[in-house]
Design a protein around this nucleic acid. Structure first.
Lengths: 212, 212
DNA sequence: TCTTCAAAACCGACTGTTCGGTCACTTCTT
DNA sequence: AAGAAGTGACCGAACAGTCGGTTTTGAAGA
């Protein structure tokens, strides 16, 4: 594999093979996580062999176990990693906007982008039965938090008079999340497309004005 | 595979058990399917051992193989079974209503009931990666058909003037399906409840009037 | 700068276990 | 009695996780 014939006199730290600047432990862990996300997404939880994950990360199988307890542990780590990334990104999207239109539009963009990148994994993650009680609780808690964000957003908009006062907050939340998710699903279903094409204002319009 | 070369005195063609799907045979098959749905729902595809399925159906493991080719085959059969049940039920729900309100409301009721009964299995079925190309194509085709039903419904309502004429049919469909699904998800998330509690008219109202 | 060397990182062949699927045998049905 | 239906012990492929051996690293000493 590596035919480093001229091993003499070369400063090893800068030489060929070491293209990556001596990955720190944390960097490597992240590297494995990213590789594992790709493999889990492609093969599903049970179909993803540790061997594949190792190969995808460009390391040996044993090495994966230097960084993660077990396959379950790795998966749980990834789940936390992804869910947290989504939560933070979504929160930012909401906070960035001024009006409710802007807020929902930002959510729409962010969700579309995230789903585009992680759809398969999201699907797999939804199979919560396979996970330990612990991680399931954590996962559901974050889900709750996200729903709560939306509820807060809707409540705020109601108070500002941007939304009608008789609106059921829970249902409104379902409508927003559901519409955004479903839109992403139908797009992924056809096959991922560049996010630029999406007409987010139109989506927001349907949500706000309704169908009638 | 077939050792018909022996040409013994017995006429095999009349003694093959697969030839006649007797009533009891079909009943038993359905029985196994129902048991398998419960087991798949509880353990996920890979977690569901054939042994469990057999036990759940009250038969021996070998007997399952009298009725189904393989685990994959059984799963595919179930998927077809369930998806078809959903498609037909949804179509009926739509056709039963007169106005668009009624139609959407029927869809809402039906979807809620179905999800309540089959949620876990639906989740598992969404992990389409694990399936053969064949069955995945079939599954996606039916999904498309369902989306098409909704589109037709929306188009019809637009023509009748029940929905605004500038409405994007695709987006409207996303909004309806997404909202209904999300609502079910959030309910399942909390834990299944009797379907009676659901305020379907309120859901329809949010979809039609929008949030503003 | 070069050498040394112990610890850390890495590796993949191996092990033990877990099921999907089979088949020789038993039980039921006609 | 004959054959159909049913059974579960058994087989082997697949794979998570281990472990003994190898390579890399970097600090200390020359």
């Amino acid at each position: 594999m590596d035919d480093r014939g001229s091993s003499k006199s070369v400063d090893h730290r800068l030489s060929l093979k070491e293209m990556v600047p001596t990955a720190s432990r944390e960097e490597k862990q992240t590297e494995i996580i990213k590789a594992a996300i790709r493999v889990f997404s492609k093969y599903g939880f049970d179909g993803a062999k540790m061997e594949y994950i190792a190969k995808e990360a460009g390391i040996g199988k044993g090495t994966v176990y230097e960084y993660f307890e077990s396959k379950d542990g790795l998966f749980e780590e990834i789940l936390k990693f992804s869910v947290e990334k989504f939560r933070i990104g979504l929160k930012e999207s909401m906070d960035k906007g001024e009006t409710i239109e802007q807020k929902i539009m930002n959510c729409s963009s962010f969700t579309a982008q995230f789903m585009n990148d992680h759809m398969e994994f999201v699907h797999i993650a939804m199979q919560v039965k396979i996970l330990s009680e612990d991680i399931r609780v954590h996962y559901m808690a974050v889900q709750s938090v996200i729903i709560e964000y939306y509820k807060e957003m809707v409540k705020g908009a109601k108070e500002k008079g941007e939304l009608r006062s008789d609106l059921d907050v829970e249902l409104a939340t379902c409508c927003i999340i559901g519409t955004l998710d479903q839109f992403c699903k139908q797009r992924v279903f056809i096959g991922p497309r560049p996010t630029g094409e999406v007409d987010h204002p139109a989506i927001v319009d349907v949500i706000l004005r309704g169908l009638r």
